[in-house]
Design a binder for these strands. Structure first.
Lengths: 220, 220
DNA sequence: AGTTCAGTGATGCGT
DNA sequence: ACGCATCGCTGAACT
């Protein structure tokens, strides 16, 4: 975190080589090198960079007859930038490293449901957040006694529309409970919405979707 | 795509309001506004922006006694930036919009395996790429005739270490074939590596991992 | 360090 | 244009 912050707008060409490999045709791009070593090359559109490297990369500077060559290396991944002409460069020493504070996440949704748990699972005897299993942690596990039988309600939360991936994730937990632990289990996806395919797949397995809205934000 | 490209290094403060909500404390940040309307606010570390808005956002400029206020709006999402002082700004008219060309993806791995398919599945009768099912598309489906019985080999590719999520995905396809289509099916994950838990889970279901390396890159 | 999961995910592809 | 599944995802939390 003691590196240099550098922002360069320049005419350049970029090569990436690692697990995959890419080439970016010569043009005018924004090159960002952050204090933690992260490197970004941005084009004129899109939020995602054309090329990037995560924090921890090392930057090498080299002057050649063809122009400046920047090489950023991290493990077995390398990005090479051949700079033809620098239009503007900023040495961002003062660059701040604050974090945003974010409200309205999946765990907020989960906690909101827990605070109204009687509404969804009356007569519950146990509640476990992030219940750990060999196949991953269950967002919320609510155990009920139904006429003497213990029912395990396995709940997966999604803050937006649930897809097939959510069903798979839930199915994995349920398979563990049903076939390894031999306990009676019912699966639930709590989300504001669910895709048609996901709902079909869910109901074929005898599980359920419960529509819930992201809770209103309450500032601390 | 006819908007202005703008790069600003400035002291500012940022608020985001939409499905979620966040606040970024005053400091020195890099503000990027792209030609397609995308907006990024980057801090001194990490590859991801602190705040962002996808393409299509509209930017409003406002001058107040407290400083310049930029407001970027897209659907019901809004980012507000209060700029105290601009250190450097670049009007990036020439900003290029080229795309990278990428080799070594999951589909390259799949195609490499297909070209050596006899090695893995001798006596196959049918090969289907991206075989569509109600629960998603199977990367590769290879059908074999084994002493008169049709065996469906369901193959999922991962370009790096396979995790539990890959098993779930594969399991979803297999469940469909076995319980809905009533055909004999065997599942495979082809990847350079697999996590311990994922391998256990896979083998418990009678499925298999096949170690494959990302193919050498051959430039066109 | 390895593994798993959430994300204002984003992108690409199919309908 | 929208819905849907994947990603060189990234980053964070936990073992």
């Amino acid at each position: 975190m003691d590196g240099i912050g550098l922002i360069i707008y320049a005419r350049c060409e970029v090569w990436y080589k690692g697990r995959a490999e890419s080439h970016l045709a010569p043009g005018d791009y924004l090159i960002i090198r952050k204090k933690d070593g992260a490197l970004l090359i941005h084009g004129a559109t899109l939020t995602t960079p054309l090329n990037y490297q995560p924090p921890g990369a090392e930057l090498k500077y080299e002057r050649t007859p063809e122009g400046i060559i920047l090489t950023s290396t991290r493990k077995k991944e390398e990005i090479k930038i051949k700079i033809q002409e620098v239009y503007t460069h900023i040495l961002a020493d003062s660059w701040s490293n604050n974090k945003i504070t974010l409200w309205g996440t999946e765990s907020h949704l989960r906690d909101h449901v827990i605070s109204n748990i009687d509404k969804y699972f009356p007569g519950h005897t146990e509640i476990h957040k992030e219940y750990s299993t060999p196949v991953g942690a269950i967002d919320l596990l609510v155990i009920q006694d139904k006429s003497g039988e213990r029912v395990h309600n396995v709940i997966e939360f999604k803050r937006k529309k649930a897809t097939l991936a959510a069903c798979s994730q839930l199915g994995r937990y349920l398979q563990h409970f049903r076939t390894q632990m031999m306990v009676l289990s019912i699966g639930y996806i709590f989300s504001p919405d669910i895709t048609a395919n996901a709902l079909i797949h869910l109901e074929q397995n005898g599980d359920h979707h419960v529509k819930v809205e992201i809770p209103q934000i309450t500032h601390p």
